[in-house]
Write a protein that binds this DNA or RNA. Structure first.
Lengths: 214, 214
DNA sequence: TTTTTTTTGGTGTCATCGCTCCACAAATCC
DNA sequence: GGATTTGTGGAGCGATGACACCAAAAAAAA
């Protein structure tokens, strides 16, 4: 709570900002996370951020620009585990298992809104928000591509059969994760998400690429 | 386009409605389906329904009441396949397989909005829409409960191991379906959803309740 | 035909949304 | 200290959202 200096430092002469820009951004992020873009009003934002409209406009340009910044902040703060785990030097199956387990935990933290800010955002919105919708779809595609790349590496490493349909497998696990997000937002307990994750790992491809039926 | 009589018939004396209430309701349903509740404005609605504000108010009471009617219409028209398939006299695995396959097809019809009206609706919304949010969560719970009941029947029929965690398995498949909805809304092709469904069936419990690993 | 009941089109209204403007305050620079 | 530069609080604004009202219209009932 100690008022820190702005992270980008003084920009020259003139009156300094009376608020912590980073802190305000995080407050906005949490609101957007919980309520979505359209569900968060300007007044909600400036109240939660503790600043006036003019300060808002001066520091963040517009609600839409703030949302984009909030997404970036989310990706770096609360979404980094995804890429972190993908980059760990474990075998591919273990990596996916850790990813799902971590997702279950992250989606049910009691110090942050439930679920994920990006996973199901702007899937239903007014046509005037088409840009936002495409932005979120792009974000989701990027996460899915990152997973696909890790799975492809798994094929190269011999962790997965050469016949594996990488893109489909990535789509499957991302679908599962997004469904977990809906569960979390509807109030599901962490244990429930962990069970979903465990069952999801049963779908992991076998050497013969076939079913798990006896 | 021929003006049909209202499906509930004349209600007595007085001027008859000049529009088809059912048709107007379906037009509203499609808008809500595509844009969500908050993303659909009053003007959008009356334009798509082809009626005036007073006719709207007279016939549907309010936007929120209309939304509830739209959900019911959706459940009966575009969501019925879910319960239909659950009620088919196939073995449990086949039933789930058909459910996922049908979902992939239904979520990518070109004559209707992509995805599902309920699966990811109101997961992020303003606090003023708390009632709506709970309504949608309840709807989702009902679909999940219906699936759980069918799975429980499967245990009783011997289609599933007695040790199966029914609720977890239902949560898993509903999560997958909801994730498929996000994929569909982001523009995924039907084939992609079918692949997700196919992979999802790999997670089907085996007799030993264990992994499919060799 | 007259009365009664119901629907309709058009307009008005009140609140909210997302800014925007401006006079002032608080720093730095000289 | 004065000039300059930048941020701030608060008031206001145009647009949109979701109705709400009312007089006219159109049908059945008498």
């Amino acid at each position: 709570m100690t008022p820190k200096k702005n992270d980008i430092g003084r920009r020259g002469r003139g009156r300094p900002q009376s608020f912590d820009r980073t802190q305000a951004l995080y407050a906005a992020m949490r609101l957007f996370w919980d309520r979505g873009y359209e569900g968060t009003s300007f007044d909600d934002l400036i109240t939660a951020m503790g600043i006036s409209p003019s300060s808002f406009y001066n520091a963040f340009k517009s609600k839409e620009a703030l949302y984009q910044e909030a997404i970036e902040a989310y990706a770096q703060a609360s979404g980094a585990w995804f890429y972190d785990i993908l980059g760990e030097p474990a075998d591919t199956r273990t990596t996916l298992e850790r990813l799902l387990t971590f997702a279950a935990a992250e989606f049910t933290r009691d110090d942050l809104p439930a679920g994920c800010m990006i996973a199901v955002a702007a899937t239903q919105c007014s046509p005037s928000q088409a840009r936002l919708r495409e932005l979120m779809a792009t974000q989701r595609t990027q996460y899915e591509t990152a997973m696909a790349n890790r799975l492809r590496l798994g094929v190269n490493l011999g962790d997965l059969p050469a016949t594996t349909d990488i893109d489909a497998l990535a789509a499957f696990y991302m679908s599962l994760i997004r469904g977990m997000v809906v569960q979390a937002r509807d109030g599901a307990a962490r244990e429930r998400l962990l069970e979903i994750a465990r069952i999801g790992m049963q779908a992991w491809p076998t050497k013969d690429g076939g079913s798990s039926a006896a």
